[in-house]
Design a protein around this nucleic acid. Structure first.
Lengths: 159, 159
DNA sequence: GGCAATTTAATTGTATACAATACTCTGGAA
DNA sequence: TTCCAGAGTATTGTATACAATTAAATTGCC
């Protein structure tokens, strides 16, 4: 076996991102506590506030989540009064997610709360943009490699 | 109500990071398929390869996970033959996580596999370092704000 | 028009996460 | 020595994620 470099946790970009993601999750969960929304519920609401009504599939495209995650999440949002789930009449396969009056009424309150909490992070728009640009590159690479199921093949070629 | 800026999903750094984290998870899950390790199991093994044996608490400090997550994860690693969980004799509260012979034997294979897969991402060390540096800043801000439970107070001050 | 392939959601099963609680053990104070 | 506060782990309950399967509806194709 040839000499192999150790893989150290603290040098792994994946762990930095994984850790940051959990911290963001916690941050928004706290920020949104007055509204009782979890982070995934919140991003679902963001999309719906932009574009309701949407089918489960359309919402999933935006959030990169499938029905296995969204169906129970949306049922919880429905139970809490944020959305309604209605079978489409023109295509009975689809379920349309509509905003309730409460959701529409609370939209600006949430926007405002989020805006305020984000100022606490003390990042400039420029810093945020720069970071998101880099993340897009990383994500494209990950998509190129893994979404096309090339990992096994390519790595086996390397071996 | 004063005019409020909309919050658009595609402009949210949190979502970029959340999405990247999921893609990394999937990437490593595929890369590690030959070993049957999930991403969280893999990072646990990374720490143990650096420093076994460790208590559940010490491992949790490194991974930023608590016993509620680690206990079942470690039981699964034990069932699959990667680790053993042994009550400490000097302090019966502690459980020491040891590597099995198989885990020690497979370490370099995993290191190599990961090294190969990472080359597929086509990122230079410089790019990775730069990104991790920025992420450290973000995470520090998130820790400052949310770990100290100041969100509610500060935002209410703003209101 | 009839039927196979496809699309869309929901369901099932497994694996994280994490708050809150329970339980056991340890070390120190009275 | 006894008791108790705190530490360390496990458990419980809720909420994601996602692969794989199921079920129902629709579309294409003949």
């Amino acid at each position: 076996m040839p000499k192999v470099s150790p893989v150290l946790l603290d040098e792994q970009l994946c762990f930095s991102i994984y850790s940051a993601s959990k911290k963001f999750n916690h941050f928004y969960q706290s920020a949104l506590a007055p509204f009782g929304l979890t982070y995934p519920q919140y991003i679902a609401m963001l999309v719906l506030w932009e574009d309701a009504p949407l089918t489960v599939h359309q919402l999933g495209d935006r959030l990169e989540l499938d029905s296995g995650t969204l169906t129970p999440l949306l049922k919880r949002l429905e139970k809490q009064g944020w959305v309604t789930r209605v079978r489409s009449r023109t295509d009975e396969r689809q379920v349309l997610i509509h905003l309730t009056e409460m959701a529409t009424a609370k939209r600006d309150e949430v926007y405002q709360r989020i805006g305020q909490c984000q100022t606490l992070l003390g990042m400039t728009n420029k810093e945020i943009d720069s970071m998101m640009t880099e993340l897009v590159t990383v994500k494209e690479q990950l998509d190129n490699v893994s979404a096309q199921r090339l990992i096994t093949k390519k790595v086996d070629d390397l071996a």
